[in-house]
Design a protein around this nucleic acid. Sequence first.
DNA 1: AAGAGTCAGCTGCTCTAACCAACTGAGCTA
DNA 2: TAGCTCAGTTGGTTAGAGCAGCTGACTCTT
Lengths: 268, 268
Amino acid sequence: MSGPNGARIRNPRPASRRRLPVDKGDRYGCAMARDIQERIKKLIIDQRLPSGSVLPTEPELMERLGVSRNSVREALKALQAMGIVEIRHGFGTYVGPMSMAPMIEGLTFRTVAGHYRGEDSLLQLLELREAVETGLIARLAGSLPAADLAELDALVDRMDAEAAGPGGEVRAETDRAFHATLYRCLGNQLLGEVLEAFWDAFHKVRTDLVDVPQDPRVTCRQHREILDAVRSSDVVRAERAIREHFGNIRTRLNAPVTAAVPRPTYDR
Amino acid sequence: MSGPNGARIRNPRPASRRRLPVDKGDRYGCAMARDIQERIKKLIIDQRLPSGSVLPTEPELMERLGVSRNSVREALKALQAMGIVEIRHGFGTYVGPMSMAPMIEGLTFRTVAGHYRGEDSLLQLLELREAVETGLIARLAGSLPAADLAELDALVDRMDAEAAGPGGEVRAETDRAFHATLYRCLGNQLLGEVLEAFWDAFHKVRTDLVDVPQDPRVTCRQHREILDAVRSSDVVRAERAIREHFGNIRTRLNAPVTAAVPRPTYDR
DNA sequence: AAGAGTCAGCTGCTCTAACCAACTGAGCTA
DNA sequence: TAGCTCAGTTGGTTAGAGCAGCTGACTCTT
């Protein structure tokens, strides 16, 4: 039943299956499964359940919703994939953290798939990050608390140390922390999580797919410049610094991406 | 087994269940289900399957992955929730559109839940939109093709007509189209989809939860101002126009949000 | 009596088997 | 020829059984 590369071959009705699915606006599956998901979501909303609350057990949901165990489980699996519930074997089902973790996963997959198909999906993701951070930096300039400035100073210092250290590279975690700390003072949790999600997805794909050469000293200098610009309340300079930083990543990205031969394996 | 409000009461072991789940880094469920999902994803990536491609049928996946139909279906349900596959009753399973639709859903739920819990989640979502659009507008000023400018002109004209028309309100679809068309020329599909996702989630929550009063003439004037600023290549003016537009939405949002008594029903 | 091991009873996880529902295509009927 | 039915495909749903992770209380040992 399987072709040479595991490709699917269906003898009795090969042509008809080539039909592309017609969009009937009926995404997300059939009525019942969708309905169960909605009812569980409604349960969470209506009872104002916070993250971590206990949800009914599978047998209880079966009885309450009047469906079989299997349907309940499929609905819960879908909700789990969206981060709405969290399932723990032997414990029970809980209201999920509602984090952006599922988005990271979806975005990562989409970017990897697009990359392998020859699209510039990684570049698009970078542009997205650039857009958000550029739009935020103006609000930041001059209004960063002293404590955050000190923390950012320490992070850039650490970058310097890492660049001069044995590895000769700035650790990814340090870069991530810098960008996260920079926008923390805005007091917008969603913003922070989305930015981290974009960063995570970008970083995952970049390290997995393309081997980007980087000059760690340039990285350090650019982060320092961003920090100094923000400290001195210079909006224009801050925006320019951010753009330069991303421009740097972009140029480093462009060369290898076009030349790179996608590796045949994907093991995420 | 159920309390007065449908709250769960478990007689034999009530105290132990109050334990919050310990984070073992094992999100997304047990090993096997997770593994099946990964293998299906690997199949899509390795064979470079584009959106709409036929995936193996459930029996074929059972055999190939060596698991039961139930497990296959649960994995597919989770992947469907992430937009990675699309399941069509009676047809088969296909590679999904990889759109941002699941993100809209997750974001909407998160925002609704946060709103009901008294957080300013809707405002956070608006700030996110503002950040992205502000960061993009500079790249746009002066580089918009004439065709897009004409289309935007027509959209603002339509807004005027709708504002003066019977309803006296600018239709949501027109606003959506304006923002979508504005950033289309950047040639970044991801960017466009993310912006639309944010718009959709914001709009869904706003119309469902808070009844925002709006002066349609102000809305029209602000969109016209954005368009004119972009047309005249005036970056500073364009940024100011965007900020004013979002500032307008924000102020209209702030008053009712704090005063609003959340309705007890959630029916999405 | 204190400690350790076992066991019953929760929880979710997986499998098997059967049937239902949506859809297609070929062959039959009028 | 036009329309229908029917077999065979696909996913959707139900049912029942047993497995696996976890807790608390009971029991046996020391």
